[in-house]
Computed example of a mutant assay.
Amino acid sequence: MKLRKVTAAAAVVLALSTVATACGSDDKNDGGSSSGGGKTIKIGIKFDQPGIGQKTPQGYSGFDVDVATYIAKQLGYNANQIEWKESKSADRETMLQRGDVDFIAASYSINDERQKKVDFAGPYLLAHQDVLVRADDNSIKSPSDLNSKKLCSVTGSTSAQNVKDKLAPKANLQKYPTYSACLTGLQNGAIDALTTDDSILAGYASQAAFKGKLKLGGFKMTNENYGIGVKKGSDLKAKINTALEKMVSDGSWKQAVEKNFGPANYKYEPAPKIGNIVQ
């Protein structure tokens, strides 16, 4: 009887040891995390910018989504291993610093202040501040024509204020809570122009509801170098740069641009060279 008790106890110990070994052997890639027994990668994107990053009942779509998916594949992750996380503009640095995400692709302009807190791969797109106007409005041909016009400013944004301060001091700023509200105002004549990055504006103008009704001014008022944000000191930066270079060389980058912005006749810049920040 004593021998049988010892044998039973040993079997329990062996079983527990086997479970512990299995739990500790998750296959993790660099920058990835374990979830539900399989490796995953957490990527921050915008959820509310058509053409850039948007969450819909059908899934996730936009240029940043396509870029991030390509990068993830080069890092060893399939699309079903990606966990998409909403990255609002004010939260991006904190999300990276806390490790909430492995990287962020969310119309994330590289600037000196942000580079003090996080690292950037890229840039992967050179955008410019521009305006969106009604297609039949030929009165706005340059930034100075915005004087006396009703210019939409999304609450918390500095884009419209920059135009008023530097280019059109007599512009009549109209503050709306969202870009969608600005678009409604643009359609019904409550405002004359909406301003933010041309890539974001092109994404909105590419929507079926606005096809042929809106157009970009093409003013290129600022340079916005979009980068992939990573945690300070992360070795993902070099790996993502390699992935971005491949995306350009194999034609996938151009295909993604034309797919997401093409309907707006967006005159996009050539793919920027890695590390080349246009001031």
Score class of each variant (00 low, 15 high):
1 M>Q: 14
4 R>C: 09
13 V>Q: 07
13 V>R: 05
17 S>N: 12
22 A>F: 13
23 C>P: 00
26 D>Q: 14
29 N>P: 07
34 S>T: 14
38 G>C: 07
40 T>Y: 03
40 T>Q: 08
40 T>N: 06
41 I>E: 03
41 I>Q: 04
47 F>R: 01
52 I>M: 06
58 Q>C: 03
60 Y>D: 04
61 S>W: 01
65 V>W: 05
65 V>A: 05
67 V>M: 10
69 T>F: 02
70 Y>N: 06
72 A>P: 02
73 K>A: 11
73 K>E: 11
80 N>G: 02
81 Q>L: 01
82 I>W: 01
82 I>Q: 02
86 E>C: 03
88 K>H: 08
96 L>T: 09
97 Q>S: 12
100 D>W: 04
103 F>L: 04
110 I>G: 00
112 D>L: 00
115 Q>L: 05
117 K>Q: 10
119 D>H: 02
121 A>W: 03
123 P>R: 04
124 Y>G: 03
128 H>G: 05
131 V>S: 07
134 R>V: 06
136 D>C: 04
137 D>Y: 09
137 D>H: 12
148 S>I: 01
150 K>C: 10
152 C>L: 09
154 V>D: 07
155 T>W: 13
156 G>D: 13
163 V>C: 10
164 K>V: 09
165 D>Y: 11
168 A>V: 13
174 Q>S: 15
174 Q>V: 15
174 Q>D: 13
175 K>S: 15
175 K>R: 13
176 Y>D: 12
178 T>P: 11
180 S>P: 02
181 A>R: 14
184 T>Q: 13
185 G>Y: 05
185 G>N: 09
187 Q>H: 01
187 Q>K: 07
188 N>W: 08
191 I>L: 06
195 T>R: 08
197 D>P: 06
200 I>D: 09
202 A>M: 08
202 A>R: 11
203 G>W: 09
203 G>F: 08
205 A>T: 12
207 Q>Y: 08
208 A>W: 05
211 K>I: 09
217 G>R: 10
220 K>Y: 10
225 N>M: 04
226 Y>A: 04
227 G>P: 09
227 G>V: 08
229 G>D: 13
232 K>R: 10
237 K>G: 03
238 A>C: 06
240 I>Q: 09
245 E>Y: 00
247 M>A: 02
247 M>L: 01
254 K>M: 01
254 K>Q: 07
258 E>F: 00
260 N>M: 03
261 F>G: 05
270 P>H: 03
274 I>P: 09
278 V>Q: 12
